[in-house]
Nucleic acid binder design. Structure first.
Length: 267
DNA sequence: ATGGTTGCGAAGCAA
């Protein structure tokens, strides 16, 4: 009995369809969560994903920016979208699926990047990010009775020292400032979420899911950050089999700057 | 080194 779920910020679902096909042909996740789809719902490429076996697709997109989607081989029900910060952005989508006797709530997030300047008094985008994180603190892994939970997505924060290539050099860089990292850790604590990637890989080891487009040679420089995450309610922790970070996908043709992260469970 | 690259959509913003 195996079950796998992948999360991937693909930075335009239409442009990235060839490498999405490559990834799912090779790895066949049962559920694929996408962020930064950058497409309105009526233009979302449903057919190619259905042809790959993902018959159950829920989308929440907008023109040009943001956008999240869940493509699944198994049925999705009770879907909803929460408008964090009430600004009309498509940054969250959620649904229920069943595996064995278990009922599981899945959340797929695209947290605001926050702009360049880590000061909300001069950069409203950073304020928006902090407000978004504040609102996430109210989301509990055990919010629904008899329901486990999985939270995935591009959270745009690298919370731990070894989630970035240089802790010291990134302390004032948006995604790794103390106010953000403390905030995300508080989201985890208050919501009783488990960080499944760090359950598998010790905190002392470097772990990245994103490499900037701007590096001359992303692989040689290896200046990555762990911006993408898979969390779960505590009951699912012991059922985690493995997590794969597909670093190779960063080197594929016309890549996203993020790579897919896949969790395999014994359920 | 305060640059660099990419996507959307058709100039400049967001990441």
């Amino acid at each position: 009995m195996g079950f796998s779920i992948a999360t991937w910020n693909i930075n335009s679902v239409r442009l990235r369809m060839p490498i999405i096909e490559q990834f799912v042909m090779q790895h066949r996740p049962d559920i694929l969560c996408l962020q930064e789809t950058k497409v309105p719902n009526e233009l979302f490429p449903l057919s190619p994903l259905r042809a790959l076996g993902y018959e159950h697709i829920i989308v929440h997109g907008q023109k040009g920016y943001h956008g999240v989607a869940i493509a699944s081989r198994i049925p999705l029900t009770e879907d909803h979208r929460q408008d964090y910060c009430n600004v009309g952005d498509a940054r969250h989508i959620s649904a229920i699926f069943h595996r064995g006797s278990r009922r599981i709530r899945l959340h797929n997030f695209y947290v605001p990047a926050g702009g360049d300047e880590p000061d909300r008094t001069i950069n409203p985008k950073f304020g928006h990010k902090l407000d978004f994180i504040e609102e996430m603190k109210r989301l509990h892994a055990n919010a629904e009775p008899n329901t486990s939970a999985i939270l995935v997505g591009d959270l745009n924060i690298a919370p731990l020292e070894h989630d970035v290539w240089s802790h010291k050099q990134l302390l004032k860089i948006v995604s790794h400032t103390p106010i953000e990292t403390d905030g995300l850790i508080e989201v985890m604590k208050r919501g009783a979420w488990l960080d499944l990637m760090r359950q598998q890989v010790p905190e002392s080891e470097k772990l990245y899911t994103w490499w900037s487009y701007r590096a001359k040679d992303w692989e040689a420089a290896d200046r990555g950050r762990r911006l993408d995450h898979i969390w779960s309610s505590s009951d699912l922790g012991p059922l985690l089999q493995r997590i794969d970070i597909l670093k190779a996908a960063r080197g594929w043709d016309r890549p996203s700057d993020h790579v897919p992260v896949t969790a395999h469970f014994n359920l």
